[in-house]
Amino acid sequence: MSYEAAAAAINAHFANEWNERTPVAYDDVEFTTPNDVPWVRLTVQHSMGYQASVGSPGSNQFRREGLVTVQILTPFGNGKIKSMQLADQVTAIFQRLGRVEGISFRDVRLNEVGNASTGWYHVNVKAEFEYDTIA
């Protein structure tokens, strides 16, 4: 699996599971930030790669690892409560998916950022991922 295919698979599965609960900003896709409704930003970042097995040419296994971050932004007021509700839903998606198209997710966790000076309450849900490719 290529880097591009892995990112596309993660984006597609999140979009399918999220089912337009809020607007979603994806990497490298034009997005207009809403003014007064919750929204999320999905980011897929590869971070490591290594050779996981040694074999003959064309049969070596390479492991790719990375981090999916879903930034949740909610307007001030009941922002923390709504952020936590959305964080529970994001967490459930990655815990339930477990494995998608050869990509495994693990260590799903919450990181509370808090009030941003821009008028949003901000939390992040992060999930590590890994997949293998043969070359």
Rank of each mutant, 00 (worst) to 15 (best):
L110R: 12
G98N: 10
G49M: 13
L73I: 08
V100R: 06
R64G: 05
N111V: 15
V90T: 12
P34Q: 07
I72D: 08
H13G: 09
P57R: 14
D28A: 07
T91Q: 02
A5D: 04
F14H: 06
Y131E: 00
N115C: 07
N115S: 06
R109V: 12
G114W: 12
R41N: 14
E65G: 01
P23V: 09
I10C: 03
M48D: 15
D107H: 05
N60F: 01
P23A: 13
I134E: 13
S59H: 07
I10T: 00
R109Q: 13
Q61C: 11
G58F: 01
N11G: 03
A9M: 04
S56W: 02
F62S: 12
S104C: 02
Y50L: 10
V54A: 11
I72E: 04
S56L: 15
M48H: 11
A5P: 00
Q61I: 14
G58H: 02
A116Q: 12
E130V: 02
D132G: 10
A6T: 09
A25L: 08
L42I: 04
S83W: 02
A6Y: 00
Q71W: 08
V108N: 01
V37C: 10
I134S: 11
S83T: 05
G98L: 06
N35H: 11
I103G: 06
A12Q: 15
W39K: 09
H122D: 07
N111I: 14
R41G: 08
I10G: 07
P34E: 05
E128R: 09
R41A: 11
V29K: 08
Y121N: 06
M48V: 04
T118H: 01
Y3F: 12
V40H: 02
